[in-house]
Amino acid sequence: MNTSTDKVILENLMARLKQETSSEHDRMEVLMQQAGVFESKENYAQFTLSQYYFQKDVEHLYLDPKVQQLIPDLDVRGRSEAALQDLKDLNVEPQQQLIATEMIKFPESLGWIYVSEGSTLGAAFLFKEAQAKFGFNVEFAARNLAAYPEGRAVVWKRFKQTLDEANFTEQEKNEVIKGALNGFNRFGTLLEDLKNLK
């Protein structure tokens, strides 16, 4: 690669996000394995609870007019309602009301949304596992892992394009990356405490 190519990659927000959160991706995989999500329906139910809490955190950020202006298709995103329906199927009722993103501002909020949107790609594998191990599906206990109606790749590509075409300053890009790291940290904390979640 030459220096001009390096510069383009450095300036590309999605490329930076992928690079600067790669260790967090790896950490989430380790935490998922340690959680034994598919070892029992109880473990799976606790994982679904963590999904619900994280989605509530992310969807709180949708209320910001700046987020709404930048991402006009928010109505097809977000999975807290699907997770809540899954929890009802699994006889689990969320007890917590805390929203971890109460103080998060734009554009840091976009980093949290990046974590959520990126997780929809990995959810394809989780959805297959839930089907294979427990017989769960898009109508029972695995709604929150199902693909968007348009397909995972289409919606993810549209989100990536939106961020890359937003013309953020370096400081704003840094804020988005900070948000992504904090989003990963939040979900990691939920996974680490999976057995104690209520």
Results as ranks from 00 to 15, higher is better:
82 A>I: 06
46 Q>E: 11
42 E>P: 03
52 Y>Q: 03
53 Y>D: 04
71 I>P: 00
81 E>Y: 14
96 Q>H: 11
87 L>E: 01
81 E>C: 10
75 D>S: 13
45 A>Q: 11
58 V>N: 04
92 V>I: 14
72 P>A: 04
104 I>A: 02
64 D>A: 06
85 Q>M: 13
68 Q>P: 15
95 Q>Y: 09
55 Q>R: 02
46 Q>R: 06
65 P>T: 02
68 Q>Y: 11
105 K>W: 13
43 N>I: 05
67 V>N: 04
83 A>K: 01
59 E>V: 03
65 P>I: 00
57 D>I: 07
84 L>N: 02
79 R>P: 12
88 K>T: 12
49 L>R: 00
105 K>S: 12
42 E>D: 15
99 I>F: 01
61 L>F: 04
96 Q>S: 15
54 F>W: 06
65 P>W: 03
82 A>S: 15
76 V>L: 10
96 Q>G: 09
100 A>S: 12
63 L>P: 10
103 M>N: 08
47 F>A: 03
82 A>T: 06
46 Q>N: 15
63 L>Q: 14
89 D>G: 03
45 A>V: 12
53 Y>M: 05
47 F>G: 04
42 E>N: 13
52 Y>P: 05
53 Y>S: 03
49 L>V: 08
49 L>E: 09
100 A>T: 07
56 K>Q: 13
84 L>H: 01
91 N>F: 10
87 L>A: 05
104 I>Y: 01
97 Q>T: 12
81 E>P: 11
75 D>L: 14
86 D>A: 07
49 L>Q: 05
69 Q>R: 03
59 E>K: 03
55 Q>N: 11
83 A>D: 08
63 L>E: 14
86 D>C: 07
91 N>K: 04
74 L>N: 00
45 A>F: 14
72 P>E: 08
